[in-house]
Amino acid sequence: MTLDSKTVHTIARLSQLNIDDGEVDRYCQELSNILSLVEQMEQCDTTDIEPMTHPFDASLRLRSDEVTETNQREKFQAIAPQAERGLYLVPKVID
């Protein structure tokens, strides 16, 4: 699979990454190379094989419904790029 520049731009947008025009060709090339490696999988017959999403067969452990956390807003917001009046601030969002 060779990725074209349109696809690279789409992936970049979904990933929230900027790709300069000058970088597009390089990304097309590099990502296509990785995909060629990945596509070796095609030689493998995986009919009726269950996908393995976890390395061991465990089932989800559930915790009891208790409030165990205390307010740490000050500590957490001390490392925020922009926070005011207890809120994290971002550039105005227009719906």
Partner: peptide, 10 residues
């Protein structure tokens, strides 16, 4: 609440 920003409450 803010002029040019949106506040986020989580």
């Amino acid at each position: 609440d803010f002029q040019n920003e949106t506040g986020i409450d989580l």
